[in-house]
Design a binder for these strands. Structure first.
Length: 292
DNA sequence: TTCCAGGGGTAGA
DNA sequence: TCTACCCATGGA
């Protein structure tokens, strides 16, 4: 028994760009599919479902559908639809960003339809994953995330090797020792416990009336969250005012703009300052792997 | 061994 | 605001 939830998407819309804009789609409980992404999700009813999320074929997707592994009640189907709208950011308005891209031109002219970046169903999950990207390699981020999901997340009945993302309560129950000894997150363990303790506060950030600088200040109060993590989390909350300056940004801008010299954070920020509220995306669409 | 990865916390200037 | 140092882990 299975069921499909379908919803229409904004125009223009780049579905695969939405998924591949950053690394989230390869962090459990997401898994990359050839034409979309798979997600293990625990619904409010407690049911754990497997969703295969794909779009109508072609350049201009008009619909996204999630094929559930099991039948859903009406409230469960509505919850799946709302979750899709959240993780694909379908309700965000990018029109002023696209207008800016068209004005700037060049490679930015191809940005129309892009900008939506996959996020998690909960701010808590996004915050955990962002902390797991700090001061480590991408492979280790994937490993730490996988061990947390497999160790603490509720299992999918039809395939118990697959798990949904664990709830904050599971983090607290597992305790710091679990994260150090089993998940091997090292010194990040206390930060993850802190995020679990403040999960309710984190969720309120999704539709916060705070200004972006105010919200950034709140995020910076979280243990394990510094300038990079705060800027990344703001992006995941739909606020693109700040650049998440990490080793990759420094390396890219050094090569492209500073003749190999690593620019100061102020110099790097100045490169994208004209993008204003779209700064993060201004960089994201500038970035491209450089040869040599 | 040493370095460092999609940094952060702290102390001291 | 800036710099120096430490922080667990694991691959190069």
């Amino acid at each position: 028994m299975s069921q499909t939830v379908t919803l229409t998407v904004p125009h223009p819309y780049d579905f695969m760009g939405n998924l591949r804009g950053h690394g989230w789609l390869v962090l459990e409980p997401y898994r990359m599919l050839e034409e979309g992404v798979e997600r293990i999700l625990q619904l409010a009813s407690g049911k754990v479902v497997q969703l295969a999320i794909t779009a109508t074929p072609g350049e201009a997707a008009t619909e996204v559908e999630a094929a559930s592994s099991v039948a859903l009640t009406a409230p469960e189907a509505a919850e799946v639809e709302q979750t899709l709208r959240t993780i694909l950011r379908l309700d965000e308005d990018f029109s002023s960003f696209y207008a800016m891209c068209a004005k700037v031109g060049g490679s930015y002219a191809e940005a129309i339809g892009k900008g939506r970046l996959l996020c998690s169903p909960t701010v808590f999950e996004d915050a955990v994953k962002v902390v797991l990207t700090t001061n480590t390699t991408w492979n280790q981020t994937k490993g730490m995330t996988r061990r947390i999901v497999e160790g603490l997340g509720p299992a999918l009945p039809s395939d118990p090797t697959r798990h949904a993302f664990p709830k904050p309560a599971a983090f607290l129950e597992a305790g710091e020792a679990y994260f150090k000894e089993v998940a091997r997150v090292g010194y990040r363990a206390p930060a993850l416990i802190g995020l679990a303790e403040q999960a309710a506060t984190l969720e309120a950030f999704r539709n916060s009336s705070l200004t972006t600088p105010e919200l950034r200040k709140e995020l910076l109060r979280l243990r394990g969250v510094g300038p990079y993590a705060a800027a990344t989390l703001l992006m995941l909350l739909g606020r693109y005012d700040y650049l998440a300056i990490d080793s990759e940004v420094r390396a890219f801008t050094a090569k492209r703009y500073f003749s190999g010299r690593v620019g100061s954070d102020a110099e790097i920020r100045a490169l994208y300052a004209d993008w204003g509220p779209w700064t993060y995306l201004g960089y994201a669409l500038d970035w491209a792997p450089l040869d040599g």
